[in-house]
Design a protein around this nucleic acid. Structure first.
Lengths: 352, 352
DNA sequence: CATATACATGTAATCGATTGCAGTCAAAAT
DNA sequence: ATTTTGACTGCAATCGATTACATGTATATG
């Protein structure tokens, strides 16, 4: 029938009404007479009309989309979060634009290009190292753009953030190991510049002190969040004169790399060393040994972050009676998942 | 300075030229006098002008974005592919819209909403079960919309597709096991309705026959692509009267579930049974035992698919001297990665 | 019966950039 | 000197939907 694109005009003609009425019938049905509405709907069906989002967005000065800035899409840790984000956005009819910072050779400035170019209504930042302070400089100076950190947080306390209680996570890990009788507990840190690393290390050290355990700097191993970092860490552990009988890794991936390389080096987990991870990604339950870890509710983090962003976009200020700062920050609890990679400290281990 | 949004008008005024000139200076610099161009650029800088993508898209009838339909964003298998897609799109200045079909309770019809609503210039489909034949019905009937299947393929041969040689993958797996002396080789299938499952099974059976090995239906275990499916499969294997000494799993995830559950049931890989996976996701190298598997170049698949889609959007017909059908389909080679989950068949195994 | 009120609909401006067409002007060709 | 050519630039229409405002009609009120 129609070789051309069907516009609201065509529908109007077929329905015998004005374009304004068609528009209203579609977006504000209650403002239009029932009979008219049905005429319009019929015309829509006949013509096969589909709304042109671009035109609508231009007029309404919206983008209908939200950008998620991901440090590395290839990392499975982020996929569940994105999934959670999607689930919320989809319900509101918003699209999710995914930007892989690694792949894009992402410049800091580009962060808000998406906002200023009307490509997105808001920003979800999954990488804390991306500092967005200059978001305040631009032409939008007066208003705070809708930005929510996800699993992360930035310097400006006015930006929203959704994350877990990292401090608590470390505490749980250490307490668990302490309960199992471990006294020599080491740490494989995340990336050096990362905020998460700092927070978890802080929690770790606090917990160590709380339990009056020794805190040795040589037991603080530099790592990262990757498998490879875990492999390196294994060699470091191995080279230690006095080896900790338990290790807390700041991510499951490092833990896997660590355990795997240990295995190749002839050590066994948890017999020779207990290992606790962080995240509880899917494979943690099925690794051999299954991994004791701190569960982050990743899907939920995504959902909460998306929800918070949506509220900001809608202009709802979050002013629950709480203080300014905490109103912007949502902190979700973590959970210790006990599995096979941790075990009571053995005689043989003590002997070392 | 500017409380309002800066438009091309403002730039034009500051530069003392018309909006047309500004537009040209920005998008077709060569069509504008150097002096003028510099005036414009200066004005852009002064005003802090940012182009409004929505307006541009409306006028140019483009969307500046591509949609990727993902069956389950939470599955790490897809993240690398998305990463590859992103890397190509970013270079062209296109955005990537990610739609999680699971989370969106995705209706088939919505697949081309994105196209018809001008939200996307093309579609990347990572799920073969999503049949897009009705894309031909709509108002766009005459022209084939830019759609490329990624790791998958659909019924309409005119849609593009980029995938690996699944047949070959199965062959490699079986040959490898055969070389190790295995005669009783089982298969854990993927999801029943899935095209990949069919293709890989076909390749598997062909290879089994080629090597004159026994093909027993009870050795064809129903599975899926998930960890859980692998767990189930382990029980099935266990319940078998005559157990295959080697199992080919249609995905790494199933393989992990399978091996893990076997471990819990008191069996060991590769001692009691050799296992080959498919995909070679990152953790495969670090699983214990490390997983022998068929590597899919996932990042590259994403790149190729994005490239192909881009070409289709640009309207370049792919008419390399090849036949119509094959021109649309890119088939990438796979690779056998030998690791520790497979071993020569042992005396004890033969005894069973 | 006249006026107020609410509701339904149409008219036309608007969102911000792009681009076909026409006009200007100087350099090159005749 | 006149015409041709070509390079720039500006005018104004256009993309498709939304919405403020105006208009018209029916019902309620005094």
């Amino acid at each position: 029938m129609n070789s051309k694109v069907v516009t609201i005009q065509d529908v109007a003609i077929v329905a015998g009404v004005s374009t304004a009425t068609v528009s209203r019938a579609l977006s504000k049905p209650e403002k239009v007479n029932k009979a008219t509405r049905e005429k319009v709907m019929a015309a829509v069906r006949v013509t096969g009309y589909r709304i042109n989002q671009t035109a609508r967005n231009l007029r309404k000065k919206e983008a209908g989309a939200v950008v998620a800035l991901v440090p590395n899409l290839g990392n499975p840790f982020f996929s569940s979060i994105l999934s959670g984000i999607e689930s919320v956005l989809a319900k509101e009819g918003l699209s999710l634009l995914v930007v892989d910072i690694l792949q894009t050779s992402f410049e800091r400035e580009q962060a808000y290009d998406y906002l200023s170019m009307n490509q997105a209504d808001g920003l979800l930042v999954l990488d804390g190292t991306l500092d967005l302070t200059n978001l305040n400089d631009g032409s939008v100076s007066s208003e705070l753009p809708p930005v929510v950190y996800c699993c992360e947080w930035g310097t400006d306390p006015r930006f929203g953030s959704v994350r877990v209680d990292n401090h608590q996570g470390s505490q749980l890990a250490v307490s668990h190991l302490h309960t199992l009788g471990h006294k020599a507990i080491g740490l494989v840190r995340g990336p050096a510049e990362n905020r998460l690393t700092a927070a978890r290390q802080e929690g770790f050290e606090a917990a160590i002190l709380k339990h009056s355990l020794p805190l040795r700097t040589e037991w603080l191993i530099d790592g990262g969040f990757s498998l490879e970092a875990g492999v390196q860490a294994a060699h470091q552990w191995c080279a230690l004169e006095e080896r900790p009988t338990a290790i807390f890794c700041m991510s499951d991936e490092v833990a896997f790399g660590f355990i795997s390389e240990l295995d190749r080096l002839g050590f066994s987990v948890p017999k020779d060393v207990s290992v606790v991870g962080f995240d509880d990604i899917a494979i943690a339950e099925r690794f051999i040994p299954s991994l004791t870890t701190i569960r982050q509710p990743r899907f939920r983090i995504g959902q909460e972050a998306a929800g918070k962003l949506l509220r900001r976009i809608a202009g709802e200020v979050e002013n629950r009676a709480e203080s300014e700062a905490t109103a912007h920050r949502t902190v979700l609890p973590v959970e210790l998942i006990e599995r096979q990679s941790t075990a009571p400290v053995s005689e043989k281990q003590r002997a070392l």
